[in-house]
Nucleic acid binder design. Structure first.
Lengths: 236, 236, 236, 236
DNA sequence: AATGAATGAGGGTTCATTCAT
DNA sequence: CATGAATGAACCCTCATTCAT
C-alpha cells in the first residue's frame, strides 16, 4: 500500500517494487521475494478468512505457505501487519476484478446493464467468500487496519461511478426514478448480496431452510435483481 | 431488551427455574446461581461480541462478570459452550424483543405497519450491535453452535408471520404486488438493516463517508424503508 | 485408627466406635455414618488403586461412592488423609484375610502347609490387585502414611509366625534346612508373588509373553512353590 | 550407566544423530537440541520417578532441566509423550548397562557366573531406583507407553540368554537341575531384587525392620543369592 | 534472507477445598 | 451432617515472536 500504486491490478498492495522480475527458483534457498510474499499472503488470506485475526495461527500460515516462520516476520513484521496486508490485498483483488468487469461489461439499456451488474456482484461475492470473510472480520476491529488507506475507496469507485451512469441514463430515459442516490443503491445491492453469503448459516437456521442449496441461491439472486429493479421503477 | 426476562417457554435450555425472586448481592460469597449465570452470560456476550470466539479471553469475561474463573466451567463447562449459551441467549433476547414489539405494534394500514416494522428492525439492530456481532461470528463457525436448536427459527417466526400478514392484506387491497414471498422480503429488510451496522467500518472506507454519523444512519434508514416499500408497489 | 483396636477384623482402621449399629436408611438423607465411611473408603481404594494418590480425583471418588463432597472432608479432612485411611483399611483387610486363612488352614506336614500358604498368598494377591496397588503407591511416598501405625506389622505377623512354625517343624523333622530366617523366606514368597502381579505389564514386555494369560499365571505359581520348596531342601 | 552412550542400534527412537561432538554450554541461548533433549529427559526421569506420571509437574521438570517450558512441547509434544520417552530412555540405559556387564562379566564356573549375575542385578537395581520407579509406574498405566516398542524386550534379552547359557552349562556339569526354564529363574531373581527396593517402605513396616539399612540390604542380597542357588541345586 | 530451536507471557481448564444454605 | 455453588492456585499446553546458526 503506502505510496505503491496498485498498477498491476493483481499485485498485492504492500508489495515493494522489484526490478528483478523473474529469477530462477533454486530449490531450498528460494530467491523470489515477490513470489514468497504472494504465497504467504495467499496462505494468510485463507487462514484469516477461516478463523479470523485472533483465531488464525501463524504456524498454520507458515505451513500452508510452505515457508519458514522468519519469512513472515521479515516481510510483515507481525501477525497484525500480515492481516492488514492480507486485507488490503483483498481490496486489491476486488479492484482488479471490478476493472476487469467494467472492461468486459456488456452495453445495452440501463436496465440490462444494471441487471448484469447485480448478477455479477452477487456471483463474485458468492465465489470469493474468503475475501468477504476478511472484510467482515475487519469490522470487528473497527476498520483499524485500513485506516489511512485509500485502497478500499478506490476499489469500488469505478463500480459506483458505473452505477451512477446507469442510473443517470435510466432516469433520462424515464426508466428509473430521477434523483436516486447511487451510493444508496450500491449499498442496497451490496447489502443484499454480501449479507446472503456472510450470514448463510445463521439465516438458514432462522429461516428454516438451507440457504447454501443451489436453488436457494438462484432464487435469492433473482429476487435481489427483481427487488432492486422494482425499487427504481418510476411507477412507484 | 436488557433486563426483559424471556417468557417461560423460550428460555435458554440450560437455564433452571428461579427459586426465589429477589435476593441481595452479598459480595464474594454469592449464592444465586441464576443470577451468576446471567451475569456471566452478559459478560460473555460483551466479550465475544467484541473479540469473537477465538479472540475473547475467559479471564476478561471473568473479570467483567466479577466472578471466579471456575464459575464459568462449573456452569458452562467450556469456552465453546459458553459461547453457545451466549449466542442462544441472544436469540432468546431477540425473540422476547420481537414478541414485545408485536404486542405493542400499531395497527393501521399495511403500509403503515410495514413501515413501522422496518424502522423497528433497523433501530433495534442499530441499538443491539452486540447481538448481531455474536450472530455474525457464529457464521464463521458455520452455525455449529446452534445446530439442534430451534430457538433461532422460533425467534423470528412471529415477525415473518407478521410480515406475511401485512403482505397478504396489502395485496388484498392492491397496495402491494400479489404473490410476494414474505421470506424474501424479510431477507431484504434484514440484509439491509444488519449489513449496515455489521459492515459500518469497511463500508465507510469504501463509500468514503462516515456511516456511523447520525445523519447517515437516518438517511440510510429512510432509504431502506423507501426502497422496500417501492419494490412492493404494484405499479412496478 | 489411633487408639481404635482393629478388633472387628474387617472394620476400617479409622472407624470410630458407634453404638447405634443398624439404623434405617431414609432415602436421600442417609443416616449411617459407618456405612457412609465404608462406601467412601471403598470408592477411594478403587480410585487410588487405579490412578495413584496424585492421579485420583476427589470428584470421582465422590461419584463412585454416591455421596456429597463434604462427606469426604467431614470424615477424612483431606485427600491425603483419605488415602491414608484407604491404605490402612487395606491392611485391615489383609489382616482379616490372614486370620481367616489361619483359622481354616489345613494341617498336615510342614511341606503341605508351606505349599498351601504359598498358593494362598499368590492367589490372594492375584485377586486383590487393588490392595497391592495401594501398597505399591505408598512406597512412592516413602511410607509416610503408615508411619506411627502398627497395623501393617500386625497384619502380617500371624502369617510370619505361622511360617516360622512351619520352618521350625520342618527343620525338626529334617525336611527343611535348619536355621532359616522365616522373615527372609516370607520376603522370598511375598516378593515373587507380589512382583508378578504388580509388574505384569512391563515384565510381559520384557519377557515377550503375556503374563496375564491364565496358563502363564498357573505356571508361575507352580514355579514359585517349587522354587521356594527347593531352596529350603536340606539337600542343597 | 549415567553418561554411557548406548550403542547406535539401541538408541531411543526419537533421538536424532548428533551432528557435532563437543559444544560449549552458553547460558540462556543454548543451541544444542540433543543436549537439551537429554537434559529434559534426565529431569523428567527424576520427577516422574519421584511423583509418578500424574503427580509430576511439568513446571518442575522445566525448572530442574533449566529450560523453558516450550522446550518440552517442542521436543516431546506432551507430558505423556515425555513420560514415554523417559521410560524408554530408561530401558535404553538398562540395555546399555546389561551389555556393559556382559562385556566385563567374569568367566569361571556356572555357579560363579550366576552368583555374579545376581549380585550385579541386585546392586544395579539398588543403585538405580529412579529407573525402577518409572517402570513400576508404567504398570499403573498397563504398559500403554511401551506398546509397540521392542526396546524392553531387547533390553533384557542378552541377560536372559546369558542366564540360559549358565543354566545349560550348569546342568551339563550336573551342578544345576536340568530342564530349568531360564525365564522363570530370571523372574525369580528379578522379582526378589526389584521388589526389595520398590517396596522398601511398606515391607519395612510389615516386617518391623528398617530395610533401608545397609546391613539389611547386604543380608537380603546374600539371602537371594543363596536362595536362588539352592533352588537350582540338583539335590532337591 | 532461511531455518530449527527457544522463549515469556498467557491460554483454557482442572483440582482440592470451602462456604452458604 | 448434606448439598450445590464457588474459589484460588496451579496445571498442561499454546502462541506470537526472537535468536543463533
Amino acid at each position: 500500500m503506502g505510496g505503491t500504486p496498485p498498477s498491476a491490478g493483481t499485485r498485492t498492495a504492500n508489495m515493494r517494487l522489484r526490478r528483478t522480475a523473474n529469477r530462477k527458483r533454486a530449490g531450498p534457498g528460494q530467491r523470489d521475494p515477490d513470489r514468497t510474499r504472494a504465497e504467504v499472503l495467499s496462505a494468510a488470506r485463507q487462514e484469516f478468512a477461516r478463523l479470523g485475526l485472533a483465531g488464525a495461527r501463524v504456524d498454520e500460515i507458515v505451513r500452508i505457505a510452505g515457508v519458514s516462520k522468519q519469512v513472515i516476520y521479515y516481510h510483515f513484521s507481525s501477525k497484525d501487519e500480515l492481516f492488514k496486508a492480507a486485507l488490503l490485498s483483498s481490496y486489491d483483488e476486488i479492484l482488479a476484478n471490478n476493472l476487469e468487469y467494467l472492461r468486459k461489461a456488456p452495453g445495452g439499456s440501463p436496465e440490462r446493464r444494471l441487471r448484469n451488474l447485480i448478477v455479477h456482484l452477487f456471483d463474485r461475492i458468492g465465489s470469493h467468500r474468503e475475501v468477504i470473510s476478511l472484510i467482515v472480520e475487519e469490522n470487528r476491529y473497527r476498520g483499524q487496519h485500513l485506516r489511512h488507506s485509500t485502497l478500499p475507496y478506490l476499489s469500488s469507485k469505478p463500480i459506483v461511478e458505473h452505477l451512477e451512469e446507469i442510473l443517470r441514463e435510466g432516469a433520462a430515459s424515464a426508466l428509473f426514478k430521477p434523483g436516486i442516490d447511487a451510493r444508496q443503491i450500491f449499498l442496497d445491492i451490496f447489502s443484499m448480496c454480501l449479507f446472503y453469503f456472510t450470514n448463510l448459516y445463521t439465516v438458514s437456521a432462522v429461516i428454516g431452510a438451507d440457504l447454501s442449496a443451489a436453488n436457494e441461491i438462484r432464487r435469492r439472486r433473482d429476487h435481489i435483481v427483481h427487488s432492486v429493479m422494482s425499487s427504481l421503477s418510476p411507477g412507484c
